[in-house]
Computed example of a mutant assay.
Amino acid sequence: MERTSRPGLSVVAWRRSSYSNQAGGDCVEVADGFPGAVPVRDSKAPHGPALCFEAASWAAFLGGLRAEHRRS
């Protein structure tokens, strides 16, 4: 089995949700560079824990949010 190097969560570039407000309210941030996984954290607690979701599960979650947004 070949091991690949992945960046640690403390050195990755986090990006904020496009639905976040500029006042620093309820925001989530995600990090790229983790094939097959999506690290997610609370922007109000950047040094707190991050949750890692399987990429397919995260995509399904976003799809559900988009569908709900279109209905409202």
Rank of each mutant, 00 (worst) to 15 (best):
P49A: 15
A31I: 04
L65K: 03
P35S: 11
L51T: 12
R16S: 10
N21H: 06
F34H: 14
F61P: 00
Q22T: 09
A67V: 09
G48Q: 06
C27T: 04
G24P: 04
S18G: 15
D32C: 09
D26R: 13
Q22F: 04
Y19T: 10
A45L: 12
G36C: 11
V30E: 03
G36M: 06
C27L: 02
R3D: 03
S57K: 13
S17E: 00
C52L: 10
S17H: 00
K44E: 05
A59M: 10
H69Q: 10
P35A: 08
W58K: 05
D26Q: 10
C27F: 05
E29T: 01
G33V: 07
V40C: 03
R6V: 14
H69I: 05
A31N: 07
A50I: 09
R15C: 08
S18C: 08
L51G: 08
V30D: 01
G24R: 15
S43P: 00
A37S: 06
H47A: 12
G48A: 09
S43H: 02
G8M: 15
P7G: 01
V28T: 10
P49D: 12
V28F: 04
H69A: 11
G63S: 06
H47P: 00
V40R: 02
F53V: 05
R16C: 12
M1G: 14
S72K: 14
E29K: 02
T4D: 07
F34G: 02
L51C: 01
K44H: 06
S57A: 14
G63M: 08
R66F: 08
P7C: 02
G36I: 04
A45M: 12
S43V: 01
S72T: 12
G24W: 08
R16Y: 03
S18N: 08
A50H: 11
V38H: 01
A45S: 11
F61T: 03
A60S: 07
Q22K: 08
A60I: 06
F53M: 04
T4F: 14
E2W: 13
V12H: 11
S18D: 00
L65R: 07
G24Y: 14
A60L: 10
A50V: 05
A37L: 03
G48F: 12
V28L: 15
V12G: 04
W14E: 13
S43R: 03
P35F: 02
A59R: 15
